[in-house]
Every structure is written in structure tokens, then in C-alpha cells.
């Protein structure tokens, strides 16, 4: 297996063919509700305080389960119980299918622990893959949180009249928040320890976004 640091870069790379460009991290829903360009940094912060911790914690718990030879179903159930918005669960499971298919072609053994699950969420798949590829818990949590920041920022350039340099500055400014997510989630050992921080405003936007047909992004 290749070096784990390189594989972490691979998993966080937007060029990975897993349809990352279809996601806005609910930014499109937020913009539809009136969020403006100057609000994007606080939107990033809201995600890092809320949903991103659930995703990163779930990925870490899934990694732990695979390493300990424990079933992944309780991790999936714990994630779903912490993700109240059906639109967000559906978007995650759709993305997960692409990631699982890709990884299954590249590393068939790595995705085998996912076999009992019909349609797991993205964080569960990412966690299982990380276990098989030798990524540590911190590296995994970092991939999840960093990917979320970049997803929102890349989408912001399509939705709002912004300068890419400014937006990259927002990514850099969000990195301490990414490290806070890593610190809060890398130690998760079991499904019940996964953070459950809710962000009701983002949930409202995500659900409203799923009902509209006028959109660039899937979620």
C-alpha cells in the first residue's frame, strides 16, 4: 500500500471521480435563503461547529470498527440518528455509492467490511476505506473537515461573484477550525461517542433546497 499521507491527499482531492462537484455543502440552499458573499466565512464556521463534527466523528468510528473487526451497521445507525434532514442523508448516501464503487475497483479488500450495508453514508465508507488504507484517525478527520470547507468554498465561486484568491484566504482562515474538529473527533472509539451537534438553520436550508428544481448543485 502507498504511503498513508499520499492516500489522504488522494481522498481529499477534488479531482477524485466521485462527483464532488455536485455538492455545495448546502451553500446553495443558504444562498437561496439570502446568505451573501460576506457571510460565507461564518457559514463555514457554522458547519465546522455542527454537521462536520458528526461527519468526522462518524468516519473515525467507522475506521475504529473496521480495525476492531466490529460491525459497521451501528456506526451507520448512529450517523443517521444524528442527521435529521432526509435530503442530507440521501445526498451523503449517493456520494458514498460513487466512492465505494471507485475504491472497490482500486482496492477490493478495503471495501469488503462494507458488504453487509446496502447504502451507507459517505462518512462510513470513508472511514472504512481509511482503515484499509492505513490512514490514522487524525488524518481521516482532517480529510473530512478539510473536504467540507473546500466543498463550500468551491461552490461559493459558482454561486456568488467572488475572487478565488479571497475564497482561498477563507479556506486558510478556516484551517484552525478544521484542527478543532480533528481534536474533537479523532478520539471517538464507539458509535455512541460520535458528536451529535445539530445546526437547525443549515437543516432548514438543506431541506428547502432539496424541494427546488432550480439549482446547480445536488445538495
Amino acid at each position: 500500500m502507498a504511503d498513508a499521507d499520499l492516500l489522504a491527499l488522494l481522498l481529499a482531492d477534488a479531482r477524485l471521480p466521485v462527483a464532488g462537484h455536485t455538492q455545495s455543502g448546502t451553500l446553495e440552499g443558504a444562498v437561496m435563503a439570502g446568505l451573501g458573499a460576506t457571510d460565507v466565512p461564518s457559514y463555514l464556521q457554522a458547519r465546522l461547529v455542527g454537521v462536520t463534527r458528526v461527519e468526522a466523528g462518524t468516519a473515525v468510528a467507522a475506521r475504529r470498527a473496521v480495525l476492531d473487526d466490529e460491525p459497521l451497521a451501528p456506526v451507520e445507525t448512529a450517523w443517521a440518528a444524528r442527521t435529521v434532514t432526509p435530503a442530507v442523508r440521501t445526498a451523503s448516501r449517493t456520494q458514498a455509492r460513487a466512492l465505494r464503487r471507485l475504491c472497490g475497483r482500486l482496492w477490493p479488500d478495503v471495501v469488503r467490511p462494507l458488504d453487509p450495508l446496502s447504502s451507507p453514508g459517505r462518512a462510513v465508507v470513508l472511514g472504512a476505506v481509511a482503515a484499509g488504507l492505513g490512514l490514522g484517525a487524525e488524518a481521516l478527520a482532517r480529510v473530512v473537515a478539510y473536504d467540507d470547507v473546500q466543498t463550500v468554498c468551491a461552490a461559493s465561486l459558482k454561486l456568488l461573484p467572488l475572487d478565488p484568491t479571497v475564497v482561498t484566504g477563507w479556506v486558510v482562515d478556516a484551517l484552525p477550525g478544521v484542527e478543532e474538529v480533528v481534536a474533537a473527533t479523532a478520539g471517538v472509539k464507539s458509535p455512541s461517542e460520535i458528536p451529535a451537534v445539530a445546526a437547525p438553520q443549515i437543516e432548514v436550508w438543506a431541506q428547502a433546497h432539496a424541494r427546488t428544481t432550480r439549482r446547480l448543485f445536488r445538495a
Binding site: 464556521q45 455542527g50 445507525t77 440518528a81 444524528r82 451537534v197 445546526a199 438553520q201
Partner: peptide, 23 residues
């Protein structure tokens, strides 16, 4: 014992506006 809903709302000075969108 299957979790149906698990939710944590830490609403403090620095998080309330972020999580509730100013509501």
C-alpha cells in the same frame, strides 16, 4: 436500543447565531 434521534445543541454566546441562523 437503536438510536432514533441523537441531538446536541450547544447554544452559547459564540454558537447560537451560527446554529440557529440568528433566530
Amino acid at each position: 436500543g437503536r438510536p432514533v434521534l441523537v441531538e446536541d445543541l450547544p447554544l452559547a454566546a459564540d454558537t447560537t447565531a451560527l446554529l440557529l441562523g440568528g433566530h
